[in-house]
């Protein structure tokens, strides 16, 4: 037995890499369709947007890059779909320098293609990227045009119909920050704490633990934690809107629900690795004690 465990511990790491590749890749190609249970923080986020009225404003900030897109893209796209389905007006921006704007543009293009009645400049606007996230957020409280004088195409905000009804972020009903790093915290400290605008955060699973402190303190109205949160949101959206259910069941594109299959399998494999590693470690330690 000890011999087998020793052999396992000295296994060439390329075998482990191959196993990981198969465990992640297979469920993406051949989805299992595992059930996803919803949590309170995701339901709170969904219900808050559901309670908004048509014509209300939601500000969605793309504060992540391509490195975490498989986790964050499904969140942003699910929230965009919910807003457009409810005829909520959407203002989009990006504060993440490494590709936030590109992902915002791609997600908007993907989601607006599903909603032919949604018009740029009337139902949504893309304000583009701005450097200096915290300082820019402080300016949003006074005058959005001071931080974003024009949209991503260079059109002045005064010429964009959707921006005529909103001068500062105080007139926005909700901010959603889909975030990979510290920018989500800036929204809480600079906008919620100083201006009072409600915030929903969609962090990566790695960043999610710190946001529980803000959630418990009542500084967030909801949170979508990692790919699990995104998959929960897709489930809630599918349950509420039959069109969305059809879309999520039939789409060939990547969704968080599909991603959860791969994540479940790889979690099982990693837990198995940890167990094997620890059994081998303990048996080796026991043998050493016996020898001594």
């Amino acid at each position: 037995m000890a011999n087998v465990l020793d052999k396992l511990l000295s296994l060439d790491r390329r075998w482990i890499f191959l196993l990981v590749l198969l465990c992640v890749g297979t469920p993406i190609v051949l989805p299992i369709g595992l059930p996803v249970a919803t949590t309170g923080s995701t339901r709170a986020a969904f219900d808050y947007i559901e309670a908004l009225k048509p014509g209300d404003y939601v500000w969605i900030s793309f504060d992540y890059g391509p490195s975490s897109a498989p986790e964050n893209d499904p969140m942003a796209e699910a929230i965009l779909r919910q807003c457009f389905a409810k005829k909520i007006r959407v203002i989009v921006c990006a504060f993440y320098p490494l590709g936030g704007l590109g992902l915002a543009t791609n997600s908007l293009a993907k989601v607006t293609a599903q909603f032919p009645n949604v018009r740029y400049g009337e139902d949504y606007v893309n304000l583009g990227y701005k450097d200096g996230a915290a300082a820019a957020m402080r300016r949003l409280g006074e005058n959005i045009a001071e931080a974003f004088p024009a949209d991503v195409n260079g059109t002045s905000l005064t010429q964009i119909p959707i921006m005529k009804g909103v001068r500062s972020i105080r007139q926005v009903q909700l901010v959603v920050s889909v975030a990979t790093g510290v920018i989500g915290e800036y929204w809480i400290t600079q906008v919620h704490s100083q201006i009072g605008t409600p915030i929903i955060i969609g962090p990566t699973a790695v960043a999610a633990p710190k946001y529980y402190a803000y959630l418990n303190a009542g500084q967030l109205v909801g949170m979508l934690g990692g790919m699990k949160g995104a998959a929960e949101y897709e489930k809630l959206l599918s349950a509420r809107y039959p069109d969305m259910a059809r879309f999520y069941q039939t789409t060939r594109g990547f969704t968080a629900t599909k991603g959860m299959d791969g994540q479940t399998v790889i979690h099982a494999v990693i837990i198995l690795f940890i167990l094997i590693g620890n059994i081998a470690y303990m048996s080796r330690r026991a043998a050493q004690k016996k020898g001594a």
């Binding site: 511990l9 890499f17 196993l19 590749l21 890059g65 391509p66 490195s67 897109a69 590709g99």
Partner: peptide, 22 residues
Amino acid sequence: FQPLQSTIFALLAFFMASAAFR
């Protein structure tokens, strides 16, 4: 840019599994 960033981050899964084992 996007494929390169995604690739670099995806490598993390392999190293995490290996680290969990060892």
